[in-house]
Design a protein around this nucleic acid. Structure first.
Length: 247
DNA sequence: CCCGATGATTCGGG
DNA sequence: CCCGAATCATCGGG
Protein backbone atom coordinates (compact mmCIF):
# COMPACT_ATOMS: atom_id res chain seq x y z
CA UNK A 1 0.00 0.00 0.00
CA UNK A 2 2.98 2.25 -0.12
CA UNK A 3 2.32 2.86 -3.77
CA UNK A 4 -0.94 4.59 -2.96
CA UNK A 5 0.75 6.89 -0.52
CA UNK A 6 3.40 7.79 -2.97
CA UNK A 7 0.97 8.46 -5.75
CA UNK A 8 -0.99 10.69 -3.46
CA UNK A 9 2.14 12.47 -2.34
CA UNK A 10 3.10 13.14 -5.93
CA UNK A 11 -0.32 14.47 -6.70
CA UNK A 12 -1.13 11.70 -9.14
CA UNK A 13 -3.83 10.17 -7.07
CA UNK A 14 -5.80 11.95 -4.39
CA UNK A 15 -7.42 15.29 -5.16
CA UNK A 16 -8.66 15.32 -8.69
CA UNK A 17 -7.18 18.66 -9.50
CA UNK A 18 -6.64 22.09 -8.09
CA UNK A 19 -3.46 23.40 -6.61
CA UNK A 20 -1.95 20.05 -6.10
CA UNK A 21 1.13 21.66 -4.65
CA UNK A 22 2.89 18.46 -3.97
CA UNK A 23 5.96 17.62 -2.05
CA UNK A 24 7.46 17.40 -5.47
CA UNK A 25 8.60 20.97 -5.69
CA UNK A 26 10.65 21.49 -2.58
CA UNK A 27 12.09 18.04 -2.42
CA UNK A 28 15.27 18.67 -4.31
CA UNK A 29 15.45 22.36 -4.85
CA UNK A 30 18.68 22.41 -2.93
CA UNK A 31 20.85 24.51 -5.16
CA UNK A 32 18.58 24.75 -8.09
CA UNK A 33 19.11 27.85 -10.07
CA UNK A 34 16.89 30.84 -9.72
CA UNK A 35 14.31 30.22 -12.39
CA UNK A 36 12.92 26.97 -11.21
CA UNK A 37 9.45 27.95 -12.26
CA UNK A 38 10.06 27.23 -15.90
CA UNK A 39 11.44 23.78 -15.36
CA UNK A 40 8.65 22.99 -12.97
CA UNK A 41 5.96 24.00 -15.39
CA UNK A 42 7.31 21.46 -17.80
CA UNK A 43 7.48 18.97 -15.01
CA UNK A 44 3.95 19.70 -13.95
CA UNK A 45 2.71 19.28 -17.48
CA UNK A 46 4.25 15.88 -17.75
CA UNK A 47 2.97 14.94 -14.34
CA UNK A 48 -0.50 15.99 -15.42
CA UNK A 49 -0.22 13.69 -18.39
CA UNK A 50 0.72 10.81 -16.19
CA UNK A 51 -2.12 11.56 -13.86
CA UNK A 52 -4.60 11.74 -16.68
CA UNK A 53 -3.52 8.42 -18.09
CA UNK A 54 -3.56 6.92 -14.66
CA UNK A 55 -7.11 7.98 -13.95
CA UNK A 56 -8.18 6.96 -17.40
CA UNK A 57 -6.81 3.50 -16.97
CA UNK A 58 -8.16 3.22 -13.49
CA UNK A 59 -11.62 4.06 -14.70
CA UNK A 60 -11.32 1.61 -17.51
CA UNK A 61 -10.39 -1.14 -15.12
CA UNK A 62 -13.23 -0.31 -12.86
CA UNK A 63 -15.67 -0.39 -15.70
CA UNK A 64 -14.32 -3.66 -16.96
CA UNK A 65 -14.55 -5.06 -13.48
CA UNK A 66 -18.17 -4.08 -13.18
CA UNK A 67 -19.01 -5.45 -16.58
CA UNK A 68 -17.34 -8.69 -15.84
CA UNK A 69 -19.07 -8.95 -12.51
CA UNK A 70 -22.51 -8.49 -13.99
CA UNK A 71 -21.64 -10.94 -16.69
CA UNK A 72 -20.70 -13.57 -14.17
CA UNK A 73 -23.79 -12.79 -12.16
CA UNK A 74 -25.92 -13.42 -15.18
CA UNK A 75 -24.23 -16.71 -15.77
CA UNK A 76 -24.80 -17.74 -12.21
CA UNK A 77 -28.40 -16.76 -12.44
CA UNK A 78 -28.82 -18.96 -15.43
CA UNK A 79 -27.11 -21.81 -13.68
CA UNK A 80 -29.33 -21.36 -10.70
CA UNK A 81 -32.12 -22.86 -12.78
CA UNK A 82 -30.31 -26.19 -12.99
CA UNK A 83 -28.67 -26.23 -9.60
CA UNK A 84 -29.08 -24.34 -6.37
CA UNK A 85 -26.69 -21.48 -5.86
CA UNK A 86 -26.42 -19.83 -2.48
CA UNK A 87 -25.95 -16.09 -2.10
CA UNK A 88 -22.74 -16.84 -0.26
CA UNK A 89 -21.39 -18.51 -3.31
CA UNK A 90 -22.20 -15.51 -5.41
CA UNK A 91 -20.53 -13.20 -3.01
CA UNK A 92 -17.43 -15.31 -3.02
CA UNK A 93 -17.37 -15.15 -6.76
CA UNK A 94 -17.64 -11.40 -6.73
CA UNK A 95 -14.86 -11.12 -4.23
CA UNK A 96 -12.56 -13.23 -6.32
CA UNK A 97 -13.22 -11.04 -9.31
CA UNK A 98 -12.56 -7.88 -7.40
CA UNK A 99 -9.37 -9.24 -6.00
CA UNK A 100 -8.18 -10.11 -9.43
CA UNK A 101 -8.90 -6.67 -10.76
CA UNK A 102 -7.35 -4.91 -7.83
CA UNK A 103 -4.14 -6.79 -8.46
CA UNK A 104 -4.23 -5.49 -11.97
CA UNK A 105 -4.71 -2.03 -10.58
CA UNK A 106 -1.67 -2.54 -8.47
CA UNK A 107 0.33 -3.10 -11.57
CA UNK A 108 -0.97 0.12 -12.99
CA UNK A 109 -0.05 1.95 -9.81
CA UNK A 110 3.39 0.51 -9.83
CA UNK A 111 4.12 1.44 -13.39
CA UNK A 112 2.73 4.90 -12.73
CA UNK A 113 5.02 5.24 -9.76
CA UNK A 114 7.90 4.23 -11.91
CA UNK A 115 7.02 6.81 -14.49
CA UNK A 116 6.82 9.48 -11.84
CA UNK A 117 10.17 8.52 -10.45
CA UNK A 118 11.76 8.73 -13.85
CA UNK A 119 10.10 12.05 -14.45
CA UNK A 120 11.36 13.36 -11.15
CA UNK A 121 14.92 12.41 -11.82
CA UNK A 122 14.63 13.75 -15.31
CA UNK A 123 13.41 17.20 -14.37
CA UNK A 124 14.05 17.84 -10.75
CA UNK A 125 17.57 16.57 -10.50
CA UNK A 126 19.52 19.76 -10.82
CA UNK A 127 22.41 18.02 -12.47
CA UNK A 128 20.31 17.97 -15.53
CA UNK A 129 19.22 21.27 -16.87
CA UNK A 130 22.43 22.81 -15.66
CA UNK A 131 23.19 26.32 -16.82
CA UNK A 132 26.57 27.88 -16.69
CA UNK A 133 26.87 31.02 -14.66
CA UNK A 134 27.03 34.29 -16.44
CA UNK A 135 30.40 35.58 -17.49
CA UNK A 136 30.09 38.32 -14.97
CA UNK A 137 29.33 35.97 -12.14
CA UNK A 138 32.36 33.90 -12.99
CA UNK A 139 34.43 37.06 -13.01
CA UNK A 140 33.30 37.97 -9.54
CA UNK A 141 33.86 34.51 -8.15
CA UNK A 142 37.24 34.12 -9.77
CA UNK A 143 38.26 37.53 -8.57
CA UNK A 144 37.50 36.55 -5.01
CA UNK A 145 39.13 33.19 -5.37
CA UNK A 146 42.41 34.44 -6.76
CA UNK A 147 42.49 37.39 -4.43
CA UNK A 148 42.26 34.98 -1.52
CA UNK A 149 44.27 32.13 -2.88
CA UNK A 150 45.94 31.61 0.46
CA UNK A 151 42.59 31.08 2.11
CA UNK A 152 39.85 30.58 -0.44
CA UNK A 153 37.19 29.84 2.12
CA UNK A 154 34.62 32.61 2.20
CA UNK A 155 32.65 32.95 5.38
CA UNK A 156 28.91 32.74 5.42
CA UNK A 157 28.55 36.49 5.14
CA UNK A 158 31.01 36.65 2.31
CA UNK A 159 29.21 33.88 0.55
CA UNK A 160 25.97 35.76 0.87
CA UNK A 161 27.54 38.89 -0.51
CA UNK A 162 29.01 37.00 -3.43
CA UNK A 163 25.72 35.27 -4.03
CA UNK A 164 23.93 38.60 -4.21
CA UNK A 165 26.50 40.07 -6.54
CA UNK A 166 26.36 37.06 -8.83
CA UNK A 167 22.61 36.56 -8.69
CA UNK A 168 23.01 32.99 -7.58
CA UNK A 169 22.27 31.19 -4.34
CA UNK A 170 24.62 30.81 -1.41
CA UNK A 171 24.58 27.11 -2.06
CA UNK A 172 25.80 27.69 -5.56
CA UNK A 173 28.59 29.86 -4.24
CA UNK A 174 29.61 27.06 -1.92
CA UNK A 175 29.48 24.59 -4.78
CA UNK A 176 31.54 26.87 -6.92
CA UNK A 177 34.27 27.27 -4.34
CA UNK A 178 34.28 23.58 -3.60
CA UNK A 179 34.72 22.80 -7.27
CA UNK A 180 37.19 25.60 -7.80
CA UNK A 181 39.47 24.61 -4.94
CA UNK A 182 39.71 21.00 -5.95
CA UNK A 183 40.10 21.78 -9.60
CA UNK A 184 42.67 24.43 -8.98
CA UNK A 185 44.69 22.01 -6.97
CA UNK A 186 44.37 19.38 -9.66
CA UNK A 187 45.71 21.58 -12.34
CA UNK A 188 48.02 24.22 -11.03
CA UNK A 189 49.70 24.87 -14.32
CA UNK A 190 46.66 26.02 -16.15
CA UNK A 191 45.10 27.73 -13.18
CA UNK A 192 48.21 29.79 -12.77
CA UNK A 193 47.45 31.55 -16.01
CA UNK A 194 44.07 32.44 -14.67
CA UNK A 195 45.62 33.57 -11.43
CA UNK A 196 47.96 35.90 -13.27
CA UNK A 197 45.11 37.12 -15.35
CA UNK A 198 43.02 38.04 -12.37
CA UNK A 199 45.98 39.42 -10.50
CA UNK A 200 46.66 41.69 -13.43
CA UNK A 201 43.04 42.68 -13.57
CA UNK A 202 43.09 43.52 -9.95
CA UNK A 203 46.29 45.48 -10.26
CA UNK A 204 44.79 47.43 -13.10
CA UNK A 205 41.80 48.19 -10.97
CA UNK A 206 43.80 49.35 -8.00
CA UNK A 207 46.24 51.34 -10.08
CA UNK A 208 49.21 51.04 -7.82
CA UNK A 209 48.19 52.40 -4.45
CA UNK A 210 47.41 49.04 -3.00
CA UNK A 211 47.85 48.32 0.67
CA UNK A 212 49.38 44.95 0.00
CA UNK A 213 52.59 44.02 1.64
CA UNK A 214 54.99 43.59 -1.19
CA UNK A 215 57.01 40.84 0.36
CA UNK A 216 56.93 38.67 -2.69
CA UNK A 217 53.98 36.66 -3.84
CA UNK A 218 51.45 35.81 -1.16
CA UNK A 219 52.53 32.21 -1.40
CA UNK A 220 49.42 30.11 -1.59
CA UNK A 221 49.68 27.42 0.96
CA UNK A 222 47.66 25.08 -1.14
CA UNK A 223 50.47 24.20 -3.45
CA UNK A 224 53.51 25.84 -4.95
CA UNK A 225 53.00 27.05 -8.50
CA UNK A 226 55.44 25.09 -10.60
CA UNK A 227 54.83 27.12 -13.70
CA UNK A 228 55.20 24.02 -15.75
CA UNK A 229 52.99 24.20 -18.78
CA UNK A 230 54.18 21.00 -20.35
CA UNK A 231 53.37 17.54 -19.12
CA UNK A 232 49.71 18.13 -18.79
CA UNK A 233 48.51 16.14 -21.69
CA UNK A 234 45.75 13.79 -20.75
CA UNK A 235 44.80 12.43 -17.42
CA UNK A 236 42.84 9.29 -17.77
CA UNK A 237 39.28 10.02 -18.63
CA UNK A 238 37.49 6.70 -18.63
CA UNK A 239 34.87 5.72 -21.09
CA UNK A 240 32.05 7.90 -19.94
CA UNK A 241 29.55 6.37 -22.21
CA UNK A 242 26.25 8.08 -22.41
CA UNK A 243 24.02 5.18 -21.49
CA UNK A 244 20.94 6.40 -23.24
CA UNK A 245 17.68 5.78 -21.56
CA UNK A 246 14.84 6.90 -23.69
CA UNK A 247 12.80 9.71 -22.41
C1' DC B 1 29.80 14.19 -32.73
C1' DC B 2 33.50 14.27 -29.59
C1' DC B 3 35.66 16.15 -25.63
C1' DG B 4 36.91 19.37 -22.18
C1' DA B 5 34.66 22.71 -18.93
C1' DT B 6 31.54 23.14 -15.38
C1' DG B 7 27.68 23.08 -11.98
C1' DA B 8 25.55 19.76 -8.79
C1' DT B 9 25.34 15.60 -6.13
C1' DT B 10 27.16 11.82 -3.42
C1' DC B 11 30.22 9.75 -0.12
C1' DG B 12 33.56 9.37 3.62
C1' DG B 13 35.85 11.85 7.37
C1' DG B 14 36.46 15.20 11.14
C1' DC C 1 27.63 21.33 8.78
C1' DC C 2 31.77 21.92 5.85
C1' DC C 3 35.46 19.91 3.36
C1' DG C 4 37.78 17.10 -0.27
C1' DA C 5 37.21 13.70 -3.65
C1' DA C 6 34.89 11.17 -7.06
C1' DT C 7 31.23 11.12 -10.09
C1' DC C 8 27.30 12.51 -12.77
C1' DA C 9 25.06 15.04 -16.40
C1' DT C 10 24.87 18.99 -19.17
C1' DC C 11 26.94 22.78 -21.81
C1' DG C 12 29.61 24.66 -25.45
C1' DG C 13 33.30 25.03 -28.67
C1' DG C 14 35.94 22.52 -32.08
Amino acid sequence: MRLDNMLIAEGVAGPEKGGGVGAAANASAAAGAGDSAIEHSDYRAKLGQIRQIYHQELEKYEQACNEFTTHVMNLLREQSRTRPITPKEIERMVQIIHKKFSSIQMQLKQSTCEAVMILRSRFLDARRRRRNFSKQASEILNEYFYSNLSNPYPSEEEKEALARRCSITVNQVSNWFGNKRIRYKKNIGKAQEEANLYAAKKAAGEAGASPYSMSGTPGPMMSPPPGDESSMGGYGMPGMNGSGYSG
